[in-house]
Every structure is written in structure tokens, then in C-alpha cells.
Design a protein around this nucleic acid. Structure first.
Lengths: 229, 229, 229, 229
DNA sequence: TATGAATGAGGATTCATTCAT
DNA sequence: GATGAATGAATCCTCATTCAT
């Protein structure tokens, strides 16, 4: 009935020395890494904290020293993994480049910084669990989507005005620039065993589609000086 | 997911009369419809058969008369909803049309037959749960993806050969044709409350991007005789 | 994060037949009886529903078919046991009797209906857990205390006016009439092994104290025609 | 309650200097004070040593330097708080006074030394947890109950012989002398919010009941020279 | 067939106690 | 002595599945 107001556990325990601090960060990291693996493999609901603890090499109770509960663990996981990357896409220098160069940079970042790392799994988790975690969707929208969109739109709009783009489709829907990345993420987790998809090639083809390249045909394109994907 | 020794039960109870048969189909349908709502709202793991039963207006045990277990219910659900649509995309007549017309038809089908119906939720479920349900992914791959790809690839390849397409990107990666549809599905379930996305416009812009349309700007495009989306 | 509104479980499952109904009542009763024993023996916090289930001869989950949770089980237990007795003390007929007769009746009820039954444990539970269960205290106050007080006060006040009582102490504090009952309950659960206390004698002595009886000395008093305790 | 093999630890850590000794006593006191507050608020089982430590301003582990475990802490708490008071009631001088004076002194002690202090909470804890802590009940019985009874009985018996009391009820059941105090303790913790109870008035009324006072009526009685409660 | 009460394995969370620093 | 991070046993509660009616 009446509960003593459960004081929210410190997200990070108070530290004393410095070795302590390092140890703490290490443990927290281990838990997050283990959680990522488990959540990615089983989804939020089906993941057992028992397994996370085992994989992280800590006791079940230890998780609760670092995270309030399963849900907080999940959300912090997404935050921790995604926060760093946000800045990369939205650098002011990009504004100076032609749209094609920007598209190539974005594709490159996706391939190397997301698809090539465990961030791939984090974003997949956002996609698969986002609808059930409004806060997560909100965080992702404001921290990632909105920022990227805000950075891209004026650049693309200007490109349209300068005649660097055939029409305003991209300026109105910057999402179209990254749609193939989404396809890659989903395909990779579901259909790769039936028909492996080379993300690099997919992204390159996407760029060809948007920015002309009249030739291309798989391997040969790799020699093209145009992109370094 | 993990199955214990479960003796397989008849998927459909034995029938006698004809009214009985109708009643059976009706019940089965009610359960599937209820299941779709619940699974779509909560995901596979978090959905309670109790809720499905209540929504379907049957007793919990009745579900087990029509489906072996929760997992079978889920998979049959996807099968039942998606089987009908598969044929539509892969009609032989389409082979005769120019790629732009085909793309428009596909976009149109997506907007009207998927996004405008509860199939939207089914496909979303495939996306969010597919990685955890190999059988589901397999079914979806063979029944939907593969068929569509098989139908599209030769058409697009021929179009490339005829010079109707600027390069072979689409022929190599027909996925690029439907990538925006995936974006729409995901966006709609997660970010619509922050920034609603008009699927029709998105698909139209996508077509503009692929097939030229040098002008366009939202509403005005709607009068364009090109597409009927 | 977001929880599907947990619909409160039916306190009593819907019934169909009549044997069902009987069976239900029986089970519910068995659980309540088992719960009383366990709660009485260990207190609310230290009681395990596992033990309650075992003692009641049902599965753990079954408890939740009849009660929302541990707390509801506890409260319903008190309600179920106490509700019947309330009426007994506050009968209108009592208003006609002289205060001494009333006191004797109350003492008698206490000895036979409470102390001699498992209601003794229920009231003890109210005493030991009441402070931690405001709702329980409230229920007990309104259903028992208040009713008894409301019934007694006017009677005692009138008795004072009629000169049947030496002063208004009892009228102002009817609690003094039942104080020894409280002593008996507490003593019985804690000190009986050191010095057993005969409740009957205690109550009789209490009455002697209040209403004169100039002699008395344990056993002999039992022959007194005055009370039938 | 149930103990596992626990090697008994020094109840008080070894001391060296004198400041150290003071510091120790201070800490021990702080822990006991904190424990009292927490136990009083939540009961034994629901109290967390974490909260006790926080309130005492020490680390959780520190509690274990001063007390073997939660149970010992609880018992020492009761001991520490009650030991001082025991002597007060059982002074030899009292033997000379008339029963009414003694009753008044006892009532006075209760109101001022128990009800007006945190000892109220300690006794309440004995009442609510005693049944679950045989050792505690035993301690309380021997250190408090028995002593008081031993001191009172001969006095009351003599008073009966001298005809200072109308009958031997009180001599046989000295508990009747303190029953209202128990009522006050219980009422205060459970029903005060519904109907506040003035302990002083209650005790006074009780004395009136026992020793005659033919008039009285609330406030006015306070001017009565008879008692100084 | 249909029901829904009953089951019990499963999993999140808590907290007394330990022990390395 | 003190600390507080770590442990893991303990326990509440859920829900897929079964089965007597």
C-alpha cells in the first residue's frame, strides 16, 4: 500500500579513489556491452538481466548499482552509443560542399561508423523497440533525426536553388538520402542468410541513382575515383 | 521461440456441418484480427494471449484450438495477411511497362494496399520481430521479397539495356525502389507525433528523384498527370 | 516505461455452474485461512505467498486469481473475518440494559467470539500491522471502533445521567471498557509462556473493578450468579 | 530470525585512546537512534539497513562493526532504550504510598517518560514485533513486566488487606492498572487521524474510574488538585 | 467444441551481509 | 576502524499452457 518513497538509486555510485573510478567505468561499460549483445539478440522483453549479468561477469544485483532497472539500462545503452555520433553528421563545414559530396560523406559515415560497428545493433534496437518506448523514440528523434534533418535541409535547399539538384525532392524529404541505410540495417538482420547484401555497394548504387553516374556495374565501379566508400 | 516437447495439435478443428465451418472460420478470423492489434501494439513478447482472447471475444483456451501456441499464432497471422498481396506486385503484365510506370504502380500499391490498411502493422511486425523469428523471416523472404525481386530484376535489367534507365543501380538493387516505403513505415510508428510524414508525398518525391520530374513542389505536383498516387 | 493499463483482476472469478461456485468459495476460503495462519505467525512482510499457497493446497498463481496481490489478500482477510462480528456489539437491544450488563455482554463476546476464535489473530494483526497499513486502520476504525463507540457512548452517557455510573469517565472514554481485552491479546501472544493469563478471569476482574463486587477471589467468583463468562 | 552460521563478531570494536572511545559511543548512539526511527516507521522486516545507515550518517558496513546483524541491532535498541526506565517504576519508596498515589505516579510516568518521548515508539515496537522475537519478548517480560508486577503486587495486596481497595481485582491483575496506557499507544499510532486521543485525559479518567472521583468532566478536571498529570 | 480456473516455471527486483581497499 | 561496491539468495508477480467440465 504505502511505499516509502524509493529514493532513486545513484546512476553512478559515488567514487572515492581513482582506481575506483576507473573500475566503475569499466564495470558500467561491461554491463552496457553485455546488455547490447543481449538486447540485440533477443529484444528488450525477452532479454534476461541474468544473462546480461553473466555476460558482463557481474552479479545480478550489480546491474542495479549502475542502472535503475531494465528499462533504464536499455535507454542508457542507446544514449551512450548514439550520443557520440550525432555531431559527426552535422558539422558546419559540410555546408560548403556540393550535395553529392555530402551524400557521399553521409554514406561513408554510415558504412564505417554505424554498419561497421555495434552501433548498427543499437540503431536496429531503436527501430524494433522504438514504438514501444516513446521516450526512446523521442530521444532518438531529437538527438539524431532532428539534428541531421536540420543540418541537411538548408544545404539541400540551397543546392536546389543553385540548380545543383534536378528538383526539390531531396530538399523536401532528406529522409530519401538515408532510406537505403535503413534497408541495409533491416535486410542485414533478416535476409542476409538468404541473399547477402553488400552495404557499400548498395550505398554506392544509391548515390549513382541520385547523382548520375551513367555507367557502373559492381566491381568496376570500385575503381571509380569518385567515391572512397 | 524455444519449444518444449509439444504434441502438435490440429491447426483447424474437425468440422461437421457447414454452418460450423463458417463459424470456425469466423472465430479463427476474430482471433487473428485481435492478435494483430495486440501484437502490433505490444510486440510479440509483451503481448498476452489473455488480451488477445478478450479482444477476440473468446476464451483463452479457444486460441489453442486454432493455433498450436503463441508463436504459431504470430506466424500464421503474418502469413494470412501477407499471402494475398504477394501476387499483386508480381503480375506478368507489368513486364511490358516502362520502369517509371512500374515504380509508380508499386508506390501506389504500397500507399493504398499496405500503408492504408492494417497490413502496415503486419509488415512492421515483420521488421521488428523478424530477426527473432527465423521462420518468419524466411517466409517473408521467400513469399514477398524474393518474388518481388524476381519479378523486378529482369524488367529493370531490360530497361537498362534499352537505355531507359541512366545506370544499372536499380537493376542491381531493386531494394532502392522500395527503400522509402520502409522509411515511411518506421517513421510513422515512431516519429509521427514529432513530425508527421505524408507517405504519398514521400513516395512521389522518391519517384521524382528517380525519374526526372524537374519541377515539383508539394501540392502542385498532385495535378501532374504522371501519377495517380 | 509505458505499461498497458493493467486491468484489475476480478476479485472473484466469473462463475458458470453451481458446483463451480461452491468450489470457488471453498478455494477462496482455503487461501484466506492459510493466509491468516501465515500472517499471524510471521507478520505481513515476512510471510511468503509461497507458504500461503502450500498451506492452502493451491499453486502460487492461484492466489492471484482470487486476490490482486499480497496486500489485497491481507486486507480482504481482515475484512472477511471482522465484518461479521461488527453487528453483534452494536445491537439496538443493548441500549435498554444497565451499563454493567452491557459491559458483561461485551466481555463475554470478546472472550467467546474473539479470543476463542481465530479472530483473535486477525485483531492482533490489525494491532501489529495497522500503523503500516493506513487503509487497514481506516477500515478497522470505521467498521469496528467507530461503530462500537457510537453504540456505547449514548448508553453510557445516559447511565451517567441516571446516576448508574459513579462518574463520566466511561462515557468520555468508552475505550476504558475494552482496554483489558487489548491487554489480553498482547499478553497472550508474548508473555503466556512466562505467565499464562486467563482472559476470562481478567475480564471478570475488570468488571469487578468497574462495577463494585466487593468480594471475589479467583475461583470462588466463578460461582457468582452475576456473570456467565 | 532464522540464523545461519554467523561467526559472532565483537559487539564493540576494540578501543585505543579515549577520544576514540567517545567517538565509538557516539556512533553507536547515532546508529541506534537512526534504527529506532526507521524501525518505528516501517517495522522490523520492512526496514532497510541502508536507510538506517544513511540516517545515522555512517556507511552500511559500519553498522556491522557495532552490531552483529539486523536482529541484534533491533534487540539492542530495545534494551538500550528501556533499561533506564525500568528502575523508575519499581522504587522501594513507592511501597509506602496508598494505591491511588501509586496509580497516579505510574500514569504520570507513562505520560511523561514514555508517551512524551521516543520510548513510546520502542514499546510500540515491542508490541508489534514481540510475537516474532521471542528473545525480545523474554527480555521485555523479565526486565519490564515482571519487575513492575513484582513491585506492584505486594503493594496492592496489602492495600486490599487494609481495605483501601474495594476488591482484589487489581491485586490479582495489576495489568488492569496499565491497560489504558496500552490503549493509548495503539490508538495513537492508528486512529489519531480519525479521532485524536488525549492520553493525559484518558489516564485521568482511568484513575477516576478506579478511585472514585464522583464528578469530573474534561477540562475542569485539570484544576482538580488530586492529580498533576 | 468451448471454457476459464489452475498451474508453475520464469524473471525482475530487493536487501542483508561480506570484504577489498 | 570505515567504507560502500558487490554479491546472490529470496520473493513477488506474470502469463503461456493445460485440462476438467
Amino acid at each position: 500500500m504505502q511505499q516509502k518513497g524509493r529514493r532513486s538509486r545513484a546512476a553512478v555510485p559515488a567514487l572515492a579513489g581513482n582506481a575506483r573510478m576507473a573500475r566503475q567505468a569499466e564495470r558500467r561499460g561491461a554491463i552496457l556491452a553485455a546488455a547490447l549483445e543481449e538486447f540485440a539478440a533477443s529484444g528488450f522483453a525477452a532479454t534476461r538481466l541474468d544473462d546480461v549479468a553473466r555476460r558482463a561477469g557481474v552479479a545480478k544485483g550489480t546491474i542495479y548499482l549502475y542502472f535503475n532497472d531494465k528499462e533504464h539500462l536499455f535507454q542508457e545503452l542507446v544514449r551512450a552509443e548514439l550520443s557520440p555520433i550525432v555531431g559527426a553528421v552535422a558539422t558546419p563545414q559540410m555546408a560548403q560542399l556540393p550535395p553529392q559530396a555530402i551524400a557521399e560523406i553521409i554514406a561513408d559515415i554510415f558504412v564505417r561508423e554505424i554498419f561497421g560497428t555495434r552501433r548498427k545493433d543499437v540503431i536496429r534496437l531503436v527501430i524494433t523497440e522504438g514504438a514501444r518506448f516513446p521516450k526512446l523514440a523521442e530521444f532518438y528523434y531529437h538527438e539524431v533525426i532532428e539534428r541531421v534533418m536540420t543540418a541537411l535541409r538548408p544545404i539541400l535547399t540551397r543546392a536546389v536553388e543553385r540548380g545543383e539538384l534536378p528538383n526539390d525532392a531531396l530538399a523536401r524529404f532528406p529522409q530519401l538520402l538515408v532510406a537505403p541505410a535503413l534497408v541495409a540495417l533491416v535486410w542485414n538482420s533478416m535476409f542476409d542468410r538468404f541473399a547477402p547484401l553488400d552495404v557499400r555497394d548498395l550505398m554506392r548504387a544509391h548515390l549513382d541513382l541520385l547523382f548520375g553516374e551513367r555507367t557502373s556495374s559492381g566491381k568496376s565501379a570500385r575503381n571509380s575515383p569518385r567515391n572512397s566508400l
